[in-house]
Design a protein around this nucleic acid. Structure first.
Length: 578
RNA sequence: CGGGGCGUAGCGCAGCCUGGUUAGCGCGCCUGCCUUGGGAGCAGGAGGUCGGAGGUUCGAAUCCUCUCGCCCCGACCA
């Protein structure tokens, strides 16, 4: 491509609207432009980078035995009503009516459509296993779109769906996808990690997320760092559990419950200081509104409720912390003094409470707390389980090693669905014995456009983007520093065509601009290799090759440039594809 | 949804508090000269419903009301 004909509007200054680095650089480097909040146009270079990701994804999906198809973006409400998600999905599902007043939505994901397609067209175990995927624009009406391509409302996603005869088959499909994902992200040149994850609105038996490690990530990961590099345990904070709490000493004597006046002491810090006990010896009673109904949750004073875990335990679509008024309306007790004894609303507890003895709790009336409370003797709870966020005090649940926390950007998520969807949509096949059985499913997503943003978060410097070779819109930019000089222009053309003939994507900067502008733009856009044809060629017939990432340069005679760069680029790609 | 901030030329901003000629600056863009290895220089030029609507006023980018859009924080602990 010739720069003089390319739509590549680079910006010298940072756009005011962009905060995070990938958003800033995508705008500055002329990759994207915003149309509305969370909705972007992909300019030629942005699209080129996306195509590079898509290419890798396709190769690896095909290699794993999946078949590509393309499903509709606009979907009828009927299917979603049938699966039950019309009600469950919430406002993220963009709904509208067509001219016949039929309820429709824009597909945020395609379990319904694919399951419908398969139930209509696949009837025999002989056709299984089956894995179908597409690469397509998705729409999710996010609460708060942000950070450019990191969390858009409209984005490009690869989604795959596997259909198997049984659990074993589905597990094989899951593992194949997991392997394919590892290869995909490695080939993209990303530093990433697979972690255990919550299944969210997709549902299913279990899932793993693929996280690109970056400080700007919206997710927090807990990773085992036991001696020797950790035992491999890693999980999203929404899902992460610590090692099981230690059982109490059997000889601990249960002391009598004691009521203490604690005027004005509402917060954990104030109460524990006043009572002279550790926050670890206090149990706080939190009230949540679960789908509009109040639920009290008990956690240790120094712990935090993990709302996703709570949501899962309660089977609720939405949980949020109750405000003071809601607490009072539900319990008759002002916030700060609420306790589990005699409480009038459903009560659940974190498993830690089971092993605590003689702890402090809210008194259930204004200005009072209770000491020496004990589960079973003084109160009962409806459900008990892991409900809290792990902390750096927790140990790895697999090996008791220490846990460390790091930020990540979710670029892939794979789900073992089981028969959730095939049951509600009644999707069945006939097995060898002629019996009708439900498909055992899995689904597997990759945020294609988000990968481009994540790659930039991980690969940039003050001058701009530093693309990994496999994702770069162009692998090489050839700078013609003197377009008015026929000799230099001829030499640049020779390099340009020579590299193109080897199947590489090359940008020739043939603009009538000063050299500084060309250098700056080449750096900003992040092209991995730069070939400069200028005064060096005029002097002794050499051109300069510069590596964007480390700034190293080498001068070579014109005739050697193509072979040199072709070899380096092929090596680099092959290395990542190992 | 709650809180905060911002809408003035393609981009980045000033002007607004304290209303007053043709609304400014830098970059970019166009023309010419000059220059050509890290966003040069000189000269000339184009480009604006001051987000929108209503109001106050002799007079509104500026004050008031409503509205639309965008960005950030939070959906946070008793």
């Amino acid at each position: 491509m010739r720069y003089s004909q390319l739509l590549l509007p680079t910006l010298k200054e940072n756009p005011a609207e962009a905060e995070v680095v990938s958003h800033r650089l995508l705008l500055r480097a002329g990759f994207i432009r915003k149309l509305a909040s969370g909705i972007y146009s992909y300019l030629p270079l942005g699209l080129a980078a996306i195509r590079k990701v898509e290419h890798i994804v396709r190769e690896e999906m095909n290699r794993a035995g999946a078949q590509e198809l393309l499903l509709p973006v606009v979907q009828p409400a009927d299917l979603w009503l049938e699966s039950g998600r019309w009600l469950k999905y919430g406002p993220e599902l963009l709904r509208f009516k067509d001219r016949h007043n039929r309820e429709s939505c824009l597909g945020p994901t395609h379990e319904e459509v694919i399951t419908d397609l398969v139930r209509m067209n696949v009837h025999s175990y002989r056709a299984l296993p089956l894995n179908l995927y597409q690469i397509q624009t998705k729409f999710r009406d996010e609460i708060r779109p942000r950070f450019g391509l990191m969390r858009g409302r409209e984005f490009i996603m690869k989604d795959a769906y596997s259909f198997d005869v049984d659990e074993d088959g589905a597990n094989v499909a899951y593992r194949k996808m997991s392997d394919a994902y590892h290869r995909i992200f490695k080939r993209c040149g990303l530093s990433f990690r697979a972690v255990e994850a919550d299944t969210g609105t997709i549902g299913g038996d279990f899932s793993h997320e693929f996280m690109v490690l970056a400080d700007t990530g919206e997710d927090t990961l807990a990773i085992c760092k036991a001696k020797g590099g950790g035992c491999g345990y890693s999980a999203n904070l929404e899902k992460a559990v610590g090692a099981a709490p230690k059982a109490p000493e059997p000889e601990v004597e249960l002391l009598p419950l004691e009521k203490i006046e604690t005027p004005g002491k509402r917060k954990v810090v104030a109460v524990t200081a006043f009572l002279d006990v550790s926050p670890k010896q206090l149990v706080k009673t939190m009230v949540y509104m679960a789908d509009g109904k109040p639920v009290a949750v008990l956690v240790r004073g120094d712990h935090e409720v993990q709302e996703v875990k709570l949501k899962n335990m309660l089977g609720a679509v939405d949980v949020e912390l109750a405000d003071d008024q809601q607490i009072y309306d539900a319990t008759g007790v002002p916030s700060g003094y609420l306790g589990p004894v005699g409480i009038k609303i459903p009560l659940v507890a974190d498993r830690e409470i089971e092993v605590m003895r003689n702890f402090a709790i809210g008194g259930g009336e204004k200005n009072y707390h209770l000491l020496n409370a004990n589960l079973g003797r003084d109160f009962e709870v409806g459900q008990i389980g892991d409900l809290r966020e792990v902390t750096s005090d927790d140990l790895c649940p697999l090996c008791n090693g220490e846990l460390e926390f790091t930020k990540g950007i979710e670029v892939g998520h794979i789900f073992k669905l089981g028969t959730n969807y095939s049951e509600v949509l009644n999707a069945t096949y006939s097995d060898q014995d002629g019996q009708e059985k439900h498909f055992v499913m899995g689904c597997y997503g990759i945020g294609v456009s988000r990968i481009v943003a994540a790659a930039i978060e991980q690969n940039h410097d003050d001058d701009g983007i530093i693309f990994p070779v496999p994702l770069a819109p162009f692998q090489v930019v050839v700078l013609n520093l003197s377009p008015s000089d026929p000799e230099i222009t001829d030499a640049a053309e020779i390099v340009y065509r020579g590299l193109q003939d080897h199947g590489l994507d090359i940008l020739l900067d043939d603009r009538d601009e000063r050299p500084g502008i060309k250098f700056k733009d080449a750096d900003l856009v992040g092209i991995p290799y730069r070939v400069t044809v200028g005064k060096g060629f005029a002097k002794d017939g050499t051109v300069e090759i510069r590596t964007r990432r480390d700034g190293q340069t080498v001068s070579l005679p014109l005739a050697e440039v193509v072979a040199h760069l072709t070899a380096r680029i092929n090596d680099e790609m092959a290395d990542l594809a190992k």
